[in-house]
């Protein structure tokens, strides 16, 4: 996925300014920024919930504005806020998503079974979403995002509100997807402890990209001893 010169204004305020970003195929890219950095707005533009008025977004060669159908078919999305119907069961929610992507019922059924099995929730398929814990809900949302076989997974603060153990499990699961299936992932977070030194990292603050590179080199680039200090200095300097 490549984003070039993306800007967005909302309520008279610049939410994103001239954002350039590349997520290569099969890579794990962390979009790191404090709350209010513009991460969710960027995700809304990437998923066409908002229309980009300035700049371009290409997903595996498909321009999102000109060819939204082909571009969106290659995307899987885990939204920051819950986006499953609480009155339906996990299986019904997943089948609904599969239908929205035009998947044949048999294929959808097989994939739902396989993905639920993979995340250890096969036995819970017929439980109503309302009764799921926060961690289980997130796993269901990841399963849903993967059902149609996307090449790029967008995760917007996918671990927000979860305990440390659930956060680690979900992050580890998504990293495994990159290794095992070659899916590209854009992982938005405000938690620096979710970043590994070898991760390609983009620091977004106040709608602007402040730094891009391997997380392990950020501290040295900024003349700081620790990653946390480098991140703090990047977001404080810009404030």
């Amino acid at each position: 996925m490549s984003v070039a010169g993306l800007s967005h204004r909302l309520g008279g305020r610049d939410i994103l300014s001239d954002v350039d970003l590349v997520v290569p195929a099969g890579s794990f890219v962390v979009l790191l920024g404090p709350n209010g950095a513009g991460k969710t707005t960027l995700f809304s533009l990437l998923t066409r919930l908002y229309t980009a008025r300035c700049g371009t977004i290409e997903i595996f060669g498909h321009d999102l504005a000109r060819n939204p159908g082909k571009a969106l078919a290659l995307l899987g999305v885990v939204f920051q806020q819950r986006s499953v119907d609480p009155d339906l069961t996990a299986r019904q929610n997943l089948a609904y998503h599969a239908a929205l992507h035009g998947m044949p019922r048999g294929t959808a059924r097989r994939r739902i079974e396989a993905e639920l099995e993979r995340v250890g929730l096969a036995a819970e398929a017929d439980r109503k979403i309302r009764s799921f814990s926060g961690g289980e809900l997130r796993r269901i949302e990841i399963v849903r995002a993967l059902l149609h076989g996307p090449r790029l997974l967008l995760c917007d603060e996918a671990t927000v509100g979860l305990d440390v153990r659930s956060r680690a499990a979900i992050l580890s699961d998504v990293r495994d997807l990159v290794r095992e299936r070659g899916i590209a992932v854009l992982w938005a977070t405000h938690l620096i402890d979710e970043v590994e030194p070898e991760d390609a990292t983009v620091i977004l603050h106040r709608g602007r990209i402040r730094w891009q590179g391997r997380a392990g080199t950020m501290a040295a680039d900024m003349g700081r001893g620790r990653l946390q200090d480098a991140f703090r200095s990047l977001t404080e300097e810009a404030a």
Binding site: T47, L49, K70, R82, S83, D85, P86, Y96, L100, H101
Partner: peptide
């Protein structure tokens, strides 16, 4: 309601028109 519980986003990010 779908907009409030978030299901609307799932509908609107479908690749179909």
């Amino acid at each position: 309601y779908d907009r409030e519980v978030g299901s609307m986003r799932v509908l609107l990010t479908s690749p179909l028109p």
